[in-house]
């Protein structure tokens, strides 16, 4: 991956999905395949923050696995920085709803986890980990174990681990959905700020419409399974680094109302 010509790396979009379909073998005797996503195409530009919203079970997490190289498409290609994704890549970091911190490691060693396959010296690893912990304001907790941290602190540690590998692209799969309402607001602010500082390309998968509006440059709305992109909305609002400020803008409310319609939530209230 590191041997790519530089021109190709800079010219190509950070992420490109072309006609990607993913089918899974059905459970039970029928052997019926079920299609998680179908002919999905979209691109994410360098430095862009894109959110994917859609009904539950529309294949949002399938997209994440395909981009992370943990799964392969049945049809179509995923390109990262111009190169096809054939397996896990050094350039992608991902984060889930669960913090996935290793309970037997200190926060510092957890942040170093992703760096251990990068051929760095122990000192270089430590330096980078400490730098990310500082950025995520967790330096004081470096020697603590995960159980000693609050849910919000743990997600911040997970972000520090994700950013420590200096990824080209960060995948966030509902990273705030397990947190209480207040922690969520604080953490969205903290993440938005950190991501804006690093300028890293970000794909956020979420079911929270206000979160999508508050944090992203662009929103992709997906249909029910098989998942397809039904709408591509440019947010075009200021304050990407401050979700709270953005959420109070009148245009943000209008956008949320629009998303609400796009997902046909009204109709579903009856069902």
């Amino acid at each position: 991956m590191n041997t790519l010509p530089l021109a190709m790396l800079t010219a190509a979009p950070a992420l490109e999905l072309s006609h990607v379909t993913r089918r899974f073998a059905g459970r039970g005797r029928g052997h019926a395949l079920f299609t998680a996503i179908e002919k999905l195409s979209f691109t994410v530009a360098r430095g862009e923050f894109v959110s994917v919203v859609g009904p539950s079970g529309c294949g949002k997490s399938t997209i994440l696995n395909l981009v992370a190289g943990l799964d392969q498409p049945s049809e179509g290609v995923v390109h990262l920085g111009g190169a096809p994704v054939l397996g896990p890549s050094q350039h992608v970091g991902f984060m889930l709803q669960k913090d996935l911190l290793l309970p037997w490691r200190t926060i510092l060693h957890n942040v170093e986890f992703g760096l251990e396959t990068r051929g760095l010296s122990a000192t270089a690893r430590r330096e980078r980990a400490l730098r990310e912990l500082k950025r995520c304001r967790l330096l004081e907790l470096a020697e603590r174990y995960p159980y000693q941290l609050s849910g919000g602190q743990r997600q911040r540690a997970a972000l520090a681990r994700t950013l420590a590998i200096e990824p080209e692209m960060v995948l966030l799969d509902e990273p705030f959905s397990a947190l209480d309402a207040q922690t969520k607001l604080v953490l969205q602010r903290s993440f938005a700020d950190t991501i804006a500082t690093t300028g890293v390309t970000t794909l956020l998968i979420t079911h929270d419409l206000s979160e999508a509006v508050a944090m992203s440059d662009r929103i992709l709305v997906m249909s029910e399974r098989p998942g397809r992109i039904v709408e591509n909305i440019d947010v075009g609002l200021p304050h990407r680094d401050n979700p709270l400020a953005r959420q109070s803008l009148p245009r943000a409310r209008a956008l949320m109302a629009h998303l609400f319609d796009a997902l046909h939530l009204e109709e579903r209230l009856d069902g």
């Binding site: 943990l70 890549s89 996935l100 251990e116």
Partner: peptide
Amino acid sequence: DRDLVNLARAYSMNGSQIFWK
């Protein structure tokens, strides 16, 4: 935890690294 193993895979760890770590 499958997700922990996937995380390690995403960090390009091989089988023995995933086992020991």
